[in-house]
Simulated scan of single mutants.
Amino acid sequence: MPRGELVRLVSMQLLANACLTGMRMAAPLHALRLGHGEVAVGTLLALFSVSQVFLALPAGRYCERHGLKRPVVFGILGIVAGGAIAAIWPVLPTLCIGAVLTGGGNGIVSIAVQRQVGRIAGAAAALRTSFSWLATGLALSNVLGPVVAGVMLDVWGIRAAFAATAALPLLACMLLPGATDLVAGAARAPQVPGDAWDLWRNPDLRRLLCITCVLAACWDVHIFLVPVLGNERGLPASVIGTIVGAFGAAAAAVRLLTPLVAARLREWAILFTAMLGTAIVFALYPLMPAALAMGACSVLLGFTMGSTQPMVMSLLNQLTPQHRFGEAVAMRVMVNNVSSVGVPMLCGLAGSVLGAMGVFWGAGLVVGAASRLALKLGTP
């Protein structure tokens, strides 16, 4: 893949996702400070994913027909509108509307960019390298968004935090001129009747989607519980944002090394090791009382989970017909976000009964048990 094209795509997704991650840190923290309980916060977090569940497959087909530019523009408009609504009137109902718009817009941008990378990258080694850089950009967005939102919230207030994060995706529009639109031409993309669920009949693809669903659930557990724990312990928003940002920084760092490791190990082996490591960190996380210790666990979790996305995307590309990769990416987004809808609400309910420690340990048991699916990916 041409280096300039890869930089453009990585930057687009980084800027779009930074708004989402900043909103997902600031919105529940603000809701807690308004006096709303954990169930309301869990519902708010779930709304960031609701629209992606319903938009993913239509967005994937739309990207196959229209390429990159038009979907990215529509997605950015949705993201900016969501942030702007939350900034103008930061109360729970408008935060919910902003969550739906921001999540849906980010899902469209993500599908368009990931499809573009898969179509341009080429061979398996180039796929792993390209998706590693794309995943590195996503990890950096998990640093940029929460840190910007946390600092702005502490210094200028919640409206400034939402406005600053909403401005980030606008920079991505400057990267669209010169980008290549790759559409599925009629000769290369035979018409496939019905919906995309016939891809589910591939057992390896089915296992891979289950793995990525579990990993997304672990991500959401972490995002949900860090503001809750931080608020309980009286930590300022900038510190909470830094703890969340430490996760993103560690994920970005490990993804820079992923191509070197992937040259010596198969994708399934990296997934298996990372899932076991995630289970161990989840067992230790709630035992850490201080901000520094929480930050250390966040870094370790970033190391374990950060290595998984390039491997998932590389396998997804290898297991899917080329002309249907956009649909496969959309299925992954949809399955992930089904988890992201349910997990925050389940965390809110379970947290009120079991506490944060029980939720962390439950998530660790699930991801540890699901690591067997990665072993099956390595079985001929």
Rank of each mutant, 00 (worst) to 15 (best):
L349W: 15
P203E: 12
S307C: 14
L14Y: 02
V367G: 05
A216Y: 13
R115L: 07
A216G: 10
L301D: 00
V244I: 15
G145F: 12
A160W: 08
L365V: 14
T242I: 04
G104P: 07
I280H: 02
S352C: 10
A253Q: 02
L271H: 08
V109S: 03
L34Y: 03
A121Q: 03
W361L: 15
A81W: 00
M345P: 03
I158K: 02
V7M: 13
H323D: 12
L77H: 00
V329A: 05
A179F: 06
T308F: 01
L140A: 09
T21S: 06
V244Y: 01
I97T: 12
C218P: 01
S307Y: 02
A179S: 15
R3W: 08
A350G: 13
V91T: 14
R115S: 14
M311N: 13
W197E: 00
V72N: 09
R128S: 15
A269I: 02
V39R: 12
L354S: 10
L365T: 09
A126R: 12
G82W: 00
L140S: 03
A279V: 06
A283G: 13
C63M: 14
A262D: 07
R119N: 13
L377N: 12
S132E: 06
G98S: 08
L271P: 05
I108C: 03
